[in-house]
Design a binder for these strands. Sequence first.
DNA 1: CGCAAGATTAGAATTATTCTAATCTTTATT
DNA 2: AATAAAGATTAGAATAATTCTAATCTTGCG
Lengths: 131, 131
Amino acid sequence: MDAAERLRAAGLRPTRQRIELVGLLFAAGHRHMTAESLHGEAQTAGVQVSLATVYNTLHQFTAVGLLREVVVDASRSYFDTNTGDHQHFFVESDGELIDIPGEDIAVAGVPEPPNGLTIDRIDVVVRVRRG
Amino acid sequence: MDAAERLRAAGLRPTRQRIELVGLLFAAGHRHMTAESLHGEAQTAGVQVSLATVYNTLHQFTAVGLLREVVVDASRSYFDTNTGDHQHFFVESDGELIDIPGEDIAVAGVPEPPNGLTIDRIDVVVRVRRG
DNA sequence: CGCAAGATTAGAATTATTCTAATCTTTATT
DNA sequence: AATAAAGATTAGAATAATTCTAATCTTGCG
C-alpha cells in the first residue's frame, strides 16, 4: 500500500504535503517524533511544508489512528508510529522515548472510575535518567 | 507549622507572594490545579501576584517537594498538593484529575531499562470519559 | 543601622500550538 | 474532457502557555 492509498483508506485526501510526510513517517520501522523534529526532517529532505501543516497533519493522523500521541512532557507533544498496545520509558534529559511491549507490562488494581466515567486507555510512563 | 515556617523549612524565602500562595494551596485537603487556575483564585482572593510568579512558585515548590507535577495533557501543566505515592484518573473533557491511591494500583513487568538508565518514577494515567 | 550578596518578582520575550482566510481537491454535471 | 460548487487542506497570522532577565526585595554581616 503506497502513501496515497494509505491516506485514502484513512479518509484523508492525498495531498502533496501528506504524501511526503507519510513517506518520512512510515518509511522504516516505528518512530517517535515531535512536530518540530518532523518539520526539521522535512526541510532536510527538501520537502516544502509549513510547521503549522505538520501540526495539523500529526493531529489528523492521530485522529484516524495512523499515529498515537504520547503525553510525557508538559512542554512538547510526542507522536508514535506504533499504535499498538505498548508503553514507554522516557529519558527526560534528552527527550527520548523507548517502547515497552504491551505484553511485558501489566497494570493491576485500577479502581472502578467514579460516577458515569468509562476507561478509555491506561498510559504508563516509566521516567528514567542516566546513571 | 504556618506558611512562613513551611517555606523556610523548604529553603525558600517567605515572601508575601509565597505566603499567600501557600495559604491558598494548603488551606484544606489535597488539591489539583494549573498555574492559570491558581492565579485566578489568587485574583479572586485579592492576592496581588503575577501569573509569571505563580509559574515560578509552582515549579520551585515542585523542586523542593511541596508539590508534584502531573503530566497528563500536552497543552497544560497540572500540579498536585498530594506528593505521596498515587496515580490519577484524568477526565480529558473537563480537565479534571482524580486521585487513585498508591496502594490500590500496581504496575508489574517493567523491563530493566536499557544502557545505564535508572528508573526515577512510574506514572500511570487512566484516561476516562463521560458515559 | 547600612550595605553587599544573592534570591525573588513580574513585565517582556519566547516557544509551542491553533485558527482562519485563501487555496486546492474532489465530485457531480454536462 | 471541461467546469463548477462543496468541502477539505494549507500556512501565515494570531494566540496561549511558559520562560527569561533586569529591577527589586531579603537576608545576614559588620
